[in-house]
Design a binder for these strands. Sequence first.
DNA 1: GAGTTTGAAACT
DNA 2: CAGTTTCAAACTC
Length: 799
Amino acid sequence: MDVVSPELNSLLPDEIMDTEAIEEVPHSQSEPTHDTSVPMETDAPVTSESLNTCSNATPAERVQAATAAAAADSAPGSQSSITISASSTLFAIKPALATSTATTKTTDSLTGTTVSTSGTQKLATPFAFSAANHQIILNKVASAQATEAAKAAAAPAQVIKQEGQKLLVTTIGKSGQPIVLQLPHTSGKPGVSQTSGDAKSPTPQFKVVTIGGRELKPVVGSAGNQVTTLQAQQLKTVQIPKKTPASSTAPIKFIITKTVNSKGLSPQTSVTPVIAGRVVTQTSPVMSPKTITLSEPHNTTIQSISGKKIAISPLKTPSKVTVVSVASPPSNTSQKSVALPVNVALGQQILAVQQSAPASPVKVATSQTPAQNIKPVQSVAVGGVGGSQFKTIIPLATQPNVQQIQVPGSRFHYVRLVTATTASAAGQPSAPNTSSVATGKPLVVNTGAVRMSVPVVQAQTMKQVAPKPLTSAPQVVTTTQTQQRLIMPATPLPQIQPNFTNLPPGTVLTSAPGGSNVGYAVVPAQYVTQLQQSQFVTLASSSSFPASSSVQTQAKLPYNGVSAAETTSRPRKPCNCTKSQCLKLYCDCFANGEFCNNCNCNNCFNNLEHETERLKAIKTCLDRNPEAFKPKIGKGKEGESDRRHSKGCNCKRSGCLKNYCECYEAKIMCSSICKCIGCKNFEESPERKTLMHLADAAEVRVQQQTAAKTKLSSQISDLLMRTTPIISSGGGRLPYTFVTKEVLEATCECLLEQAKRAEQTRQPQAEAERAILEEFGHCLMSIISSAGKAKTDCASINC
DNA sequence: GAGTTTGAAACT
DNA sequence: CAGTTTCAAACTC
């Protein structure tokens, strides 16, 4: 799903990649039938991906998935053992030139690239790479012949030994360098770039390395000795176009090409294939669940809607994962690609990559076996670095009335609302919510939506994805076009033609009320979330959708018993702008590419009603600073902290130890690019340590207090629940109503009397306390006895 | 809650 | 690019 052009990809800070999910979706109006098939950029439902996938898979696949799940259960550790076997048709590699049609036939000799996860399994067979037939055979177990054939076809048989190997994935950058997926030997093979992460993590790791526009920077993936597949709760499809190794001396490589989208919003894309690439990096210094999702661009064909993303989540593994997805080289290159669907689950998450390169001369498209039946998968790239923020991820891939639009060259994703009549839920009975992201957090599956919470990197662009009602939900079936247009009161872009390449993060294009596909209103993705939430509420309540005014207020509406605020992924603070009209970067909402919502601002123009002004402001900001809407916290240089301020701070008086400092606020230390004076925000700073300790202690206290309050509240509520009705029901509980004021007073008097008595007799304090407690016990017994007697009497008279 | 401080953004 | 002003958040009382 996430697609970013390599150019843009190279410009974006790595941190951005961690949190953004961008999807490239054809914008062509000539494809109305694709409305339902265009996957949303949003995250897939959390429910284990394997479940969703298996629901549509053949029994054999189900069994396999179940087996894998069982294996995963047996090895719940963070060690990610990956076993690649070709015993099933789940992964089918097919010779290229295959279109994105899902009905691609799977060649027997090629099939079987199945990745199954098992914590205890090991690769039994080597990985075979055949350039001749464009096949990649991973650990062929069942079809040994295919492996042999592949070896025979490819002069130097690409055999990857499993144990102790690291999986490296390199990508093609602007320079056209190939993307290479390597499984180097532990000893290190030529061409394999080893990073510091290797030294830190002695165990073999899954790595994805970027080559090209950016410096080669391999990143450590899951810290498992073995590659495990299906270990997790998710299952995804990976389509990896294969390319012959650029160098014979190079180690075993997988060359991954990206899908070339021949259609796009901008005219130039129709001429020049859109090279979409995206880098998703994530570091997980803490043992928190993290998810990285990498989406791929997709064609306009049906197959393009299939899950095209990579979700890597080294849950609870102190590992570093970087997923790099790079566009395919220009069409004039002779690169051969192989589409390889691979289901890989790391930890509790699944890696799903689906790629295709139609423009490549020699291409192998992923064969979507009917049994596989991978449904559209939506992904959200999230990164987490100890952040406590959570993100609600709702699958929108099958959202019947929302299309995602990929604007070439833009790192933002857009959503085009389409009429529900063209894509009703009924028309997609088999459109499950395929999860692309797994999380250690429990899933909350409501009747109509799937929610998932994922820790997200702090201060990064976070996309808010509206909960997508399950297609099976009855209330979703009926959505009228009229409602849609009411939802989106945006006016067609007037004087300003939005620069799609410079829209703020999360900006979404929504269809104008004109009904046709002409004209879009630029709406933050979060706004779409609000809209969808509103829609959901409306549908659930079986009431007609309110007027456009609801757009501003519907976020407050609860649905499914959960307030919209709770469902909002990003706990953004409301702004208080008074003079900027929320159209300058002073405004955090505007700076984050979001509409003001529930803010305290005055004369706010950061809303749909002032879309024109907003666009002007966006353009102005971008003219001033093309990176104005990019996250400020990016990835540091090699060897430095993974996160650092892109510009550095300029603090003079705060010592960089107050939230005035953007570095400190982002919980990162100042770096060499900071121009601060008297900085105390560095590693060894005692002041910083003290503050951190205090902050930690305060946080613990807050958590404890919150827990205590929650417990108390729960107890009170439980007590209230046990009251009067119990009497009539003849339950075993005693009515608290017997603890009246008089009873309390009497009890207190008894206790006081006991205290006085102890004092008069000059008893030791301990003895006095004991006596008082005993008296209290007597009082309680009396109360209970009286209450029980009263209840019996009440029951006897049937009161 | 009002006033002050602070530093980024905006402006010159 | 540097200096100044504006602005809103952070902070203090």
